[in-house]
């Protein structure tokens, strides 16, 4: 029996290891997030800063169609602030006379996507489609670390030395395609997205500055990943909290059942 369990454990471990090893050959940048681990929670200050980065930078090309403006109240914005953010956006909707027209957004609306559809998005981006970011962190192996690294993985291909190329496992005939950027961490190393984030691109509010939060590239990348992690699973904290209660309860119930089983079986053995 023990053998069976051990074999199962080894097999599972090797399977999951395999799943995470896919993609790039390059090791991701080291970073740790507060939401990781079985008891991890979101740092809502970081999520708010990340929202600012998303709004000012990413939103120009990437949608966030599964998140509604009202959800921003969960990250600590006031009702009035959410209303103002929503009202700043023009949402296409049926008007009173049955025509499609823009109206100011409401908290109940979901984030407006920058392009009406995929074809329009491709037409505006040299044929590339900027994916919706609602689930980006869940949709990539080791998503948070991957996106964090990707945002900082841009290199000037012309300046790479032969050794660096070799270390990344680039083929000898590797050539950059037109309109593509070199990125260490992107599978295939050629990404259509131009370097999106630069140091100092977003200015955080005074409160963040007072806390000593810089706006260098690693910080911006970390914050926006934090926001996207929240966007991909807003109910994560509820899940973990419920989980602690559920597992503790089941352990107690298992103990009780074991005691009952022992007593019932006492006269058989």
């Amino acid at each position: 029996m023990r053998k069976l369990l051990a074999t199962a454990a080894v097999a599972l471990a090797s399977l999951s290891g395999q799943a995470f090893a896919e993609g790039s050959d390059v090791k991701l940048l080291p970073v740790s997030f507060s939401f990781e681990g079985p008891f991890g929670t979101y740092d809502y200050h970081a999520v708010q800063r990340g929202f600012q980065v998303y709004k000012e930078v990413c939103a120009a090309c990437h949608g966030l169609s599964l998140v509604a403006y009202r959800n921003l109240q969960q990250i600590g914005l006031s009702e009035a602030a959410v209303k103002a953010i929503a009202a700043d956006v023009q949402i296409r909707d049926l008007n009173d006379v049955g025509e499609m027209a823009d109206r100011p957004g409401r908290p109940a609306d979901r984030f407006r996507s920058p392009f009406p559809n995929e074809l329009a998005a491709r037409a505006a981006n040299n044929g590339a489609y900027p994916p919706d970011l609602s689930l980006m962190i869940k949709a990539r192996p080791n998503g948070a670390h991957y996106v964090y690294s990707l945002l900082q993985g841009y290199e000037d291909f012309a300046k790479l030395t032969a050794d660096q190329k070799k270390a990344m496992g680039l083929a000898a005939d590797f050539k950059m395609q037109p309109n593509m950027q070199f990125n260490k961490f992107f599978p295939g190393h050629q990404i259509a997205m131009p370097k999106p984030l630069n140091e100092g691109q977003v200015t955080y509010n005074e409160e963040a500055q007072k806390e000593g939060i810089k706006n260098d590239l690693p910080q911006l990348a970390k914050d926006v990943v934090h926001f996207l992690a929240w966007a991909s699973e807003p109910k994560m904290e509820e899940r973990k909290k419920t989980g602690v209660k559920a597992v503790l309860f089941l352990v107690i119930l298992a103990g009780l059942f074991y005691a009952v089983k022992r007593k019932v079986w006492a006269d058989v053995h």
């Binding site: 309860f249 089941l250 107690i252 119930l253 009780l256 059942f257 005691a259 009952v260 007593k263």
Partner: peptide, 16 residues
């Protein structure tokens, strides 16, 4: 004692 254990287990199970 046995009855108490049964009742406690059944009650916990019911709560669950």
């Amino acid at each position: 004692r046995r009855d108490f254990l049964y009742v406690a287990t059944a009650a916990t199970g019911a709560v669950g």
